[in-house]
C-alpha cells in the first residue's frame, strides 16, 4: 500500500493502516530521536509520542510534502522539546537533592568492564555523544541529521524550517564547538 493511501486510511481511523504505517516507519523515527537524544530509552519514549501526534493530527498533513519529511520534522521537534523539559527537570532535580540527604547521581554511568578494543571504541563514542549533548539543541540536531542520518542541507532546512545557509552556519559552529569540547576533555583527562 502506498503512503498516500495509507494516510487517507489513517485519517478515517483505520487501525490496520495505522499499524502498517507504524511498522514501516518506527525504526526510522527511533533512529532520528536516538541521534538527537543519544539515549535509547528516551528515543523509544519520544518516538511513541511522535506516532501519537501523527495519529491525532493526520488531518493536518498536506500532501505536497513527503511523509518522511513530516515524520522527520515531528521527530526533531519532539526530541528538542524533550531535551528542553529534561533540562528543566534536571534543574528541579538539583533542587530535590538540596532537600534530601541521599546523594544519588542523576544519570548513573555504566561502569561494567568490557574487553579492550570494544571498551576503547565505546569510550570514544561516549566522549563524542557527551560532547554532542553539550552543544546547543539546534546545532546538535543539525549535526545529527547531517552525519548520522546522512541528510542533505536542503532536507535538513525543510525539516527544521530554516534556510539552507542557516543549516550551514549551525553545522559549522557546532563542529567548531565539538572540536573544542573533545580537546578540552582529553586535556583534562
Amino acid at each position: 500500500m502506498d503512503d498516500k493511501l495509507l494516510i487517507e486510511k489513517i485519517a478515517s481511523r483505520d487501525e490496520a493502516a495505522f499499524k502498517q504505517f507504524v511498522e514501516k516507519y518506527h525504526q526510522m523515527v527511533i533512529n532520528v530521536c536516538n541521534t538527537i537524544l543519544h539515549n535509547y530509552d528516551d528515543a523509544m519514549d519520544v518516538s511513541q509520542e511522535v506516532f501519537i501526534k501523527i495519529y491525532e493530527s493526520i488531518d493536518q498533513f498536506r500532501g505536497d510534502a513527503k511523509i518522511t519529511t513530516w515524520l522527520y520534522r515531528i521527530s526533531v521537534n519532539k526530541s528538542l522539546n524533550f531535551l528542553r523539559s529534561k533540562k528543566r527537570n534536571r534543574w528541579f532535580a538539583s533542587l530535590d537533592l538540596l532537600f534530601t540527604d541521599e546523594k544519588r547521581p542523576i544519570d548513573p554511568i555504566d561502569d561494567t568492564p568490557q574487553p579492550g578494543e570494544e571498551m576503547e571504541q565505546n569510550q570514544n563514542k561516549k566522549i563524542l555523544h557527551d560532547a554532542l549533548k553539550k552543544l546547543p539543541e539546534k546545532q546538535n540536531a543539525a549535526i545529527a541529521l547531517s552525519h548520522f542520518q546522512e541528510l542533505s542541507y536542503k532536507e535538513i532546512a525543510e525539516i527544521m524550517n530554516i534556510s539552507v545557509s542557516e543549516v550551514g552556519v549551525l553545522i559549522n559552529r557546532g563542529k567548531k564547538k565539538l572540536q573544542k569540547l573533545i580537546i578540552d576533555y582529553y586535556k583534562k583527562n
Binding site: 511498522e23 518506527h26 525504526q27 528515543a43 511513541q48 570514544n124 546522512e150 565539538l178 572540536q179 573533545i182
Partner: peptide
C-alpha cells in the same frame, strides 16, 4: 585521540526494529 573520536561522527548507527513496538504504542 581527537581524530579517533571525531571519526565516529560518520558512523551511522542503526538501531534494530522493535518486535513489540506497535503493541506498546
Amino acid at each position: 585521540k581527537y581524530a579517533q573520536t571525531i571519526s565516529y561522527l560518520n558512523d551511522k548507527e542503526t538501531l534494530p526494529e522493535h518486535p513489540f513496538y506497535y503493541t506498546r504504542l
